[in-house]
Simulated assay, not measured.
Amino acid sequence: MIYPIVAYGDPVLKEVAEDIPQDYPNLKELVEDMFATMYHAHGVGLAAPQIGKSIRLFVIDSEPMMDEGDEGKGVKKAFINPEIIEEDGEEWGFEEGCLSIPGVREVVYRPERIVIRYFDEEWNEHEDTYDGMTARVIQHEYDHIEGILFTDYLSGLKKRLIKNKLAKISKGEVDADYKMNFPALAKKR
């Protein structure tokens, strides 16, 4: 099933998501649907809040972000109840975008390396270290389950410059080649 992506302005995107219990119904199916939704929208990551579910789950496939020569080094994985336990290395800037904020891209600085503890779909616990682009994708998606958007990292000036774009997105005045749910439109119903 392909879910609509929740647009900027929806309160679910600003909530700290809840842990998922081991008996969460149809979790494997949800993970498959999230991958399908992410690929349908041409994304490299998708967090559960972006489909309206305030739970600690995200999926990534960083392969499309790999540089030439790094093919095959991307990571495709689901992260359940993740916790970033360490971030280190030089902070580096990269222009990020978000499926919930179509048409807006801005440079965000993040540490180059992370250590993350999480469960997979079989409830096996992992503790892995990631760096570079895969670490960035994970940090971006992890922020979603913490109620943080990449626009929260921008300077006051940058935020003012994109304020009108963000308002239009929340009203549904945006072109996206995937289905979206817009908070302002839902209030009118």
Rank of each mutant, 00 (worst) to 15 (best):
V75C: 00
V31L: 03
L46P: 01
N164M: 10
E141W: 14
E127H: 12
Y8S: 09
L166I: 07
F79Q: 03
I138S: 12
S170H: 01
D67Q: 01
G72A: 06
H40F: 11
L157G: 12
G103L: 06
A135G: 03
R105T: 12
E95W: 04
D61T: 02
D152M: 02
R136K: 08
L57A: 01
G9T: 11
G72N: 06
P21V: 09
A48F: 15
P11C: 07
D67L: 02
G69V: 03
L30K: 04
T37P: 13
K163D: 01
F182I: 14
A184Y: 02
V31G: 03
Y178F: 09
K159S: 05
E122V: 07
A167D: 11
A17K: 10
P25N: 12
E68A: 02
N26S: 14
G103W: 06
G147F: 07
E96P: 04
L149C: 01
D10Q: 03
V59P: 01
V115P: 01
H40M: 04
E125A: 09
I145M: 06
P4V: 00
E106N: 15
A184L: 10
V115A: 01
K187N: 02
D152G: 05
L157I: 15
E18G: 09
I55N: 12
D19H: 13
M1H: 13
Y24G: 09
E125V: 12
Y3T: 02
L99N: 11
P4H: 00
I85G: 03
I84R: 14
S100W: 06
A176F: 01
D88I: 11
L46I: 01
G72Q: 04
I145G: 05
E127I: 15
E173Q: 11
H42D: 07
T134E: 09
T134Q: 12
I148K: 15
K77A: 11
R160W: 03
S54Q: 14
I162A: 08
Q139Y: 08
H42E: 10
R136Q: 06
A17Y: 13
A7L: 06
Q50R: 12
N181D: 15
R105C: 12
G156I: 11
D88S: 15
F35H: 00
P82R: 08
K158Y: 06
I2Y: 08
V6E: 00
R56M: 13
P111T: 11
D131N: 11
D175N: 15
M180L: 15
